[in-house]
């Protein structure tokens, strides 16, 4: 475990908790894509199938449980919470994410480290995480609503991606057998999509601040 990966895990966790707290505090999920949050929950559920079989460390196990619980809590809030669900932009969050899930699963069947259930689902979760932001990106382009997508959320999400890439570079130079091409290539694609999301976030945020200024 290196500091970059630890910091990356922490910023990733904080970004999820910021979103969860924001939804819970404002009792609103306007501008947030339920589909992206469902994809994230699916990423954690399919990636941590080894939660009860492989014990890596207490940290690893605790973090897996926290990631699964927090991502499911966001989905539950957006689907079931009587107040929150009313503010969901159902008719704007129309990205057909089932095709993305299917494409990632087919790719995982073809490109994986070992053709076992666990490895195929692990590769699936890696590919899915890379494209999970797409419904949120589409919703942001359509609604321009950044009320619940706070700047801190975007900041920590960016920090998570950046730190993980530094972690891979660090491990590449310090460990001889570090070959995680699936995670690295997919992670780079994910970071590229996040950069696109951040760009549209900035545009929406700029427009909103202009709109909010006294006319």
């Amino acid at each position: 475990m290196n500091i970059f990966r630890f910091a990356g895990d922490m910023t990733h966790l904080i970004s999820i908790l910021i979103l969860l707290l924001k939804i819970y505090a404002t009792k609103s999920c306007a501008g947030i894509s339920l589909k992206t949050q469902e994809l994230y929950a699916l990423v954690f559920l399919t990636r941590y199938l080894d939660l009860f079989t492989d014990y890596v460390s207490l940290y690893n196990t605790v973090m897996k449980i926290v990631f699964i619980a927090s991502s499911l809590a966001i989905v539950w809030c957006m689907r079931r919470h009587p107040l929150v669900r009313r503010s969901y932009d159902k008719d704007l969050d129309t990205f057909r994410h089932q095709y993305v899930v299917l494409a990632c699963f087919v790719l995982a069947l073809l490109l994986n480290e070992k053709f076992t259930i666990q490895e195929v689902f692990w590769a699936f979760s890696i590919y899915l995480e890379a494209v999970a932001i797409l419904p949120q990106l589409v919703l942001l382009q359509r609604s321009g609503n950044v009320d619940n997508l706070t700047g801190q959320y975007v900041l920590f999400l960016g920090a998570y991606r950046g730190l993980y890439i530094i972690n891979w570079i660090y491990r590449y130079f310090t460990e001889d057998h570090f070959t995680r091409w699936i995670a690295c290539v997919s992670g780079l694609v994910q970071t590229g999509l996040y950069a696109d999301f951040f760009y549209y976030y900035y545009l929406s945020w700029k427009t909103n601040t202009k709109l909010k200024l006294p006319a």
């Binding site: 080894d50 690893n60 692990w122 995680r180």
Partner: peptide
């Protein structure tokens, strides 16, 4: 700290 499945990253 490697897991049997070799995935030690979250």
């Amino acid at each position: 700290e490697e897991a049997e499945s070799g995935h030690d990253e979250l």
